Lab assay of single mutants.
Amino acid sequence: MDSLVVLVLCLSCLLLLSLWRQSSGRGKLPPGPTPLPVIGNILQIGIKDISKSLTNLSKVYGPVFTLYFGLKPIVVLHGYEAVKEALIDLGEEFSGRGIFPLAERANRGFGIVFSNGKKWKEIRRFSLMTLRNFGMGKRSIEDRVQEEARCLVEELRKTKASPCDPTFILGCAPCNVICSIIFHKRFDYKDQQFLNLMEKLNENIKILSSPWIQICNNFSPIIDYFPGTHNKLLKNVAFMKSYILEKVKEHQESMDMNNPQDFIDCFLMKMEKEKHNQPSEFTIESLENTAVDLFGAGTETTSTTLRYALLLLLKHPEVTAKVQEEIERVIGRNRSPCMQDRSHMPYTDAVVHEVQRYIDLLPTSLPHAVTCDIKFRNYLIPKGTTILISLTSVLHDNKEFPNPEMFDPHHFLDEGGNFKKSKYFMPFSAGKRICVGEALAGMELFLFLTSILQNFNLKSLVDPKNLDTTPVVNGFASVPPFYQLCFIPV
């Protein structure tokens, strides 16, 4: 009986604490739906499609509103004006990374994606500088992407125009580009180590996009005490870190300090320079996690976009025909596509942009946080508050993009057929937390897609009208449904 009384008292205290925290903070924060004790607004949000729920709530509470995930307040920004004001106009104040408990377990605050403060700034600055020195957006990395595009075309030829699921092959190409940047090595598509790495990356994007992960991140005790797919994700990350550590040891034994070959060499050189400046942010643990982040951000996002792009091109054969006509006119058949071609191919450029806009790969991006107490639109948001960005509300804005739910390359073309930029184009987020590999991803999408369409016609196994382009999961990332196609050599 005594234990029951204690339990009831504990629960009562928890409920009172929950109510007090919510009521004391709500006077400062933007308005929002009334949260339930302990669980907050979790029942009012469709976990399978958070973005749709945010759109519905914005119609009631406006472009800036507050939700509670458990006891934790989260300020939501919906629509271009609110997102721009926060991420661009007040970029420094909104540059923090929001709480992501599962990532905390995986990387302990290291790396480039989930770190904060001085650690994040130094690692991000170093990573950007190193990638630029190796030619991100310049010639040397373009050579690597072109080489991988040629290998991709050869792998597709091996399908002999038979029906195939493109998931694996389209994942190999961007993964190999990242391998060449980090390890100075590309792998054969049949290499077992490479296959294991690909498998872990593919599993992780599916797990991260599941409703279960949303629950884990908002009720963090689940991570330590409950079984579930989150444990598989943590094991996959541990596998990748151990693999990278092996490569780091190989580099330490063979590195030429006067001739760095890749990202690992550059990081080890930085560690050597910083060894007298303790404590340094440049450690082996930081290198492991930064490399894992580059793999995660640079492989599955690009391969998922490529997979979605081919599905949309199957669905819209008239678009595919126009792209192939432009390829034939500008590039021809006797040389590989290059980035200089893009400025002469406005329709193809528009298609690449429209694919990214339409699929809305990361509907709410990753959570941000404010780095200080900030007054925002007459609300006071306390330091450390998590900020949720609705990228969907920007990419699918119906004023900027008429009929935003329709796939239409003319969203990025003017009346004369010239490519038209849009400030609403934010597939990689915006501001200080914009994806480090934005330029690389854009290069890969253009070169891989043009190389495929230069060499193959795409054949659907069903009537294009019957192809479903609805994402199968739409949590962290929008993942396309399973499909097969035939690559018919031109």
Rank of each mutant, 00 (worst) to 15 (best):
D341Y: 08
S23C: 14
C216L: 14
L311C: 04
D165V: 01
P31N: 08
C216T: 15
M443Y: 07
T305R: 00
K315G: 03
E285L: 04
H276N: 14
S422G: 10
L208M: 15
R186L: 01
I387H: 01
L14N: 10
C175Y: 05
G117C: 09
Y379S: 05
T320F: 02
T301N: 03
T301Y: 00
Q324C: 05
V83R: 01
I205N: 04
F412R: 00
T299S: 07
D349A: 14
H410R: 14
D265W: 04
E328K: 15
H230W: 15
K235L: 05
R342E: 05
K121N: 11
A369R: 14
E142L: 02
P260N: 08
F482W: 09
C10Y: 07
G62M: 01
L11D: 02
K421L: 09
R108E: 11
F69M: 12
G62E: 01
L445Q: 09
E326N: 01
S53M: 07
F183L: 06
F482A: 15
K160W: 05
G137T: 12
N236C: 02
I223K: 09
E142I: 04
P363F: 02
D143L: 11
T167M: 04
V153C: 06
A350C: 02
L87Y: 07
L71R: 13
S140L: 09
L287F: 08
S336E: 14
F226Y: 06
K241S: 04
D49T: 06
K121R: 13
K72I: 03
F65D: 00
T305Q: 03
H78T: 13
P346A: 09
G62A: 02
K48Y: 08
N202S: 14
K241V: 02
E288G: 13
E400K: 09
I42A: 13
Y61R: 02
E318G: 13
F419V: 08
R124F: 03
F482N: 15
I182Y: 04
I39M: 10
A103M: 15
N378Y: 02
P402E: 15
V462T: 11
T364C: 11
P404L: 04
V6C: 12
S336L: 12
G137Y: 07
N41H: 04
A350N: 00
P30E: 00
K138G: 13
F110T: 10
G46R: 11
R144V: 14
H78S: 15
Y61G: 02
D191S: 04
S422V: 08
R144F: 08
T371A: 09
K206I: 04
E154C: 05
L152C: 02
F476R: 05
N258V: 07
N418H: 12
E354K: 00
F110Y: 15
D397V: 03
K160A: 11
K315P: 02
D373E: 06
R342V: 11
K232T: 12
K235M: 07
V479S: 14
F65K: 02
L391G: 05
I374M: 13
K432L: 09
E104L: 10
A321T: 13
Q454S: 04
F425G: 07
L17M: 14
T304H: 08
D373L: 01
Y483P: 04
S53V: 10
S336F: 14
S460L: 03
F194G: 01
R125K: 15
S18D: 10
I205V: 10
F487R: 00
I99F: 15
L29R: 04
E288S: 15
E400F: 07
N418L: 08
S209H: 11
I244P: 00
L234E: 11
D165L: 00
P337T: 07
R186N: 01
A103R: 10
E354H: 00
K421M: 12
E148S: 01
C486V: 06
L440Q: 01
L485K: 00
H344A: 14
A291D: 01
G27R: 14
Q193H: 09
N258P: 08
L314D: 01
S429F: 05
S209E: 06
R377M: 07
F126H: 11
Q44F: 07
G27T: 12
T450Y: 00
H230T: 10
R433T: 00
F134A: 12
K121C: 07
P427L: 03
K375T: 10
A173M: 01
L131G: 06
F194S: 02
R105C: 07
R26M: 11
G111I: 01
L29Q: 04
N455T: 10
L128R: 12
P367G: 10
T34F: 10
T392E: 12
I213R: 13
V323F: 05
E272V: 08
L11G: 14
S429T: 06
T386M: 08
R342Y: 04
C372M: 12
S303H: 09
L380T: 14
E199V: 08
R105S: 12
K241Y: 04
A149N: 00
N107S: 15
I207S: 05
P101Y: 09
L128A: 15
T229C: 14
I123F: 06
Y483E: 01
L312H: 06
D191E: 06
R433S: 01
F183D: 02
S18G: 14
Q340I: 10
K158T: 05
K72V: 04
G437S: 05
Q252D: 05
I50K: 09
N398V: 11
L208V: 12
F168Y: 08
Q356A: 09
Q484K: 13
S336P: 12
V330H: 12
V462M: 08
S140T: 13
V323Q: 01
V5E: 11
A369C: 14
F428H: 05
S365R: 01
K273L: 10
W120V: 06
M426D: 05
L461M: 14
R139V: 11
A291L: 15
F487E: 00
K138I: 11
K121P: 04
T305V: 06
K235P: 04
P337W: 01
I223A: 15
A291T: 07
F134N: 11
L201R: 05
L131S: 06
E148H: 00
K206V: 05
S18P: 15
P402G: 10
Q278V: 11
F69T: 06
L152R: 00
S162A: 15
P337V: 09
Q278C: 12
R307E: 02
E326I: 01
N398A: 14
F226H: 04
K59Y: 10
L17E: 13
E147F: 04
Q214E: 10
D49C: 03
T348D: 01
L29C: 03
T470I: 06
L461P: 13
S254Y: 08
F194K: 00
P63V: 05
L306I: 12
P489Q: 02
T320L: 11
T392S: 14
L131A: 07
K138H: 10
